[in-house]
Computed example of a mutant assay.
Amino acid sequence: MPSLTGEPLTTQHFIMDADEGKRNKNIGKNFMSRLQCMFSHSSGSESRLSLEDTQQWSQSLERLLESKYGLATFRNFLKSEYSDENIEFWLTCEDYKKIKSSFRMSSRAKKVYEQFIKAESPKEINIDYHTREQIKRNVKTPSTHCFDDAQKIVFGLMERDSYPRFLRSDIYRTLLENLAADATKG
């Protein structure tokens, strides 16, 4: 059977594949350990990363984002693809909606606009011209709903594009495999 390069597969190819498998398992274990260390100080129902919780991430993007481990893993995946502006914008909008002070809201709305909405901004998100112009007007007299339309668009983009790629990614699959192996060990 030929390899992807067209040359016949040798014992060396299988050794390399086995080494890569070991490397992926180690990467998965290391990532799992880092995730648990990140959240070891927090308390609550989700104190340990479990196979069941991790499997539930595949049910919906909402389910993934509701999990502190899921969110951290998804962000890590997007950063590895250099495409984390959408999740960063979505999270920024969630924080923005919690602002009570009109002064802080005005200041923060301008920063969000400059960072994510304005054409050629550092983390420009992919939204249509009409939405961009509407937000430009909204920022002049901001409310908690100033970025809602853009946030919905970005969520839809993540749901249709990034999220399915994440579910097929080595990060997610290796994490599931490691948790399943740990569960069978008992």
Rank of each mutant, 00 (worst) to 15 (best):
S107H: 11
D128N: 12
I99L: 14
K136S: 15
R104F: 13
I125C: 07
K79E: 11
E114Y: 09
W90Y: 14
S106M: 10
G70I: 04
I135T: 06
K98Q: 13
Y129H: 12
Q115S: 00
E88A: 09
G70R: 02
D84S: 08
K79R: 15
K97L: 00
L78V: 00
K79P: 02
A72M: 08
W90V: 02
R75W: 04
K79G: 05
F89V: 03
Q134R: 15
W90P: 01
F89I: 04
S83N: 04
K97R: 07
R104T: 12
E85D: 12
K118D: 11
E85K: 07
H130N: 08
K118S: 10
D84F: 07
K111C: 09
Y96M: 03
I127C: 06
Y113N: 05
I87A: 04
R137M: 12
F89E: 02
E120C: 13
S102E: 10
F116D: 01
E124P: 03
F103W: 11
R75C: 00
Y113C: 05
S80W: 04
I117F: 07
N126M: 11
S102M: 10
K123S: 08
H130T: 13
I99P: 06
L71F: 10
Q134K: 14
W90A: 02
I87E: 03
N138L: 06
R132Y: 06
M105N: 06
